[in-house]
């Protein structure tokens, strides 16, 4: 399934918390320009995968390869892995080993942005400020690590104007153009979800990881969200990794679905293929393993 050009390749990822194995030897890829959905019952380890991919957790073992540009040859990645470095430049483009990078570096260098299951906005800052903070690194550079900014250099003023323009663009995209000066914490829930996505987009990511973006939204807001995601992908050549419980969203927008259960991958394929997979049905409906075997046997016949 479009493994030809993977943006992110998760290889043998394992995550242990004490004695508990949250993710067990998981491998999958997220293709460039596609929406990959990660689904599974509660506690299957989806958010843990996210936290490993975004640097918040250090995986117990495994490799997470993210390549900008194109897919480098396997031996080039192996050379990079051997070298002990966190990233390198290959003929195809820069390659990042995410499991080695701290969280802020994953966001700043590897260009992976994320949202959170329980919304994490800067609620006491305005909507506009939230979007400006997201552009911290380029602005920091423009302000000459504060020194130039402090003496009022024109370069910084220009950069800040550009940042505001970008923020304004994203505000229009999410339909919050008229609320720029309101505190983020004052927005209704659905708007907060969209603002969090816009904030992530202001970091100009290559990969956007969304952790249950439709949770708690009403059908109208959900429809608006899917529309937003599809339009972002079209307009910004973006790849999306998505955790979602709302199957209508998953089936509507994703190109590729990976199903997790108890930290293991139980299915991987197109939405239609996954929907009809008996193991997936069993995982969601809570059928005993024995019965899954039986069903599988029946299908095989």
């Amino acid at each position: 399934m479009s493994a030809a050009d993977p943006l992110l390749a998760v290889e043998h990822l394992t995550m242990r918390f004490g004695g508990l194995i949250a993710i067990d030897d998981l491998s999958f890829t997220a293709a460039r320009g596609e929406i990959t959905a990660l689904i599974g019952p509660n506690g299957a380890g989806k958010t843990t995968v996210f936290n490993c991919a975004t640097g918040f957790y250090k995986p117990s073992s495994g490799r997470l390869v993210l390549s900008h540009g194109g897919r480098p040859a396997t031996d080039e990645i192996d050379v990079l892995t051997e070298s002990g470095r966190r990233w390198g430049i290959t003929p195809a483009g820069p390659v990042f080993l995410l499991e080695r990078m701290p969280d802020h570096e994953v966001a700043a260098r590897a260009k992976v942005a994320r949202t959170f299951q329980n919304i994490r906005l800067f609620s006491g800052m305005t909507v506009l400020e939230n979007l400006i903070v997201a552009q911290h690194n380029p602005l920091m550079l423009a302000s000459g690590w504060t020194v130039l900014g402090l003496i009022g250099a024109r370069r910084y003023a220009t950069a800040e104007r550009a940042a505001v323009e970008r923020a304004r663009y994203w505000l229009d995209q999410i339909g919050l153009g008229d609320r720029a000066d309101d505190a983020a914490g004052e927005l209704p829930y659905g708007a907060q979800r969209r603002l969090e996505i816009a904030r992530a987009m202001c970091t100009e990511p290559q990969l956007l990881c969304l952790d249950e973006p439709a949770a708690g939204l009403n059908p109208r807001e959900t429809a608006r969200l899917t529309e937003l995601l599809l339009s972002i992908r079209r307009a910004h050549s973006l790849s999306i990794l998505l955790i979602e419980h709302d199957m209508s969203v998953v089936m509507e927008i994703s190109d590729h679905v990976v199903v997790l259960d108890y930290g293991q991958k139980i299915a991987d394929g197109s939405p239609d293929a996954v929907r009809n997979d008996p193991r997936v049905v069993a995982a969601y409906l809570g059928v005993e393993d024995r019965e899954v075997d039986k069903v599988e046997a029946e299908i095989a016949e």
């Binding site: 903070v133 997201a134 911290h136 910084y156």
Partner: peptide
């Protein structure tokens, strides 16, 4: 300036700061 906004963002939510590439 970005540094001051990053301070305030840090006060609001440190995890979100890190997810935006801010070296906390």
């Amino acid at each position: 300036l970005p540094i001051g906004r990053a301070w305030e963002a840090l006060r609001e939510d440190e995890v979100a700061c890190r997810s935006l590439g801010i070296n906390t």
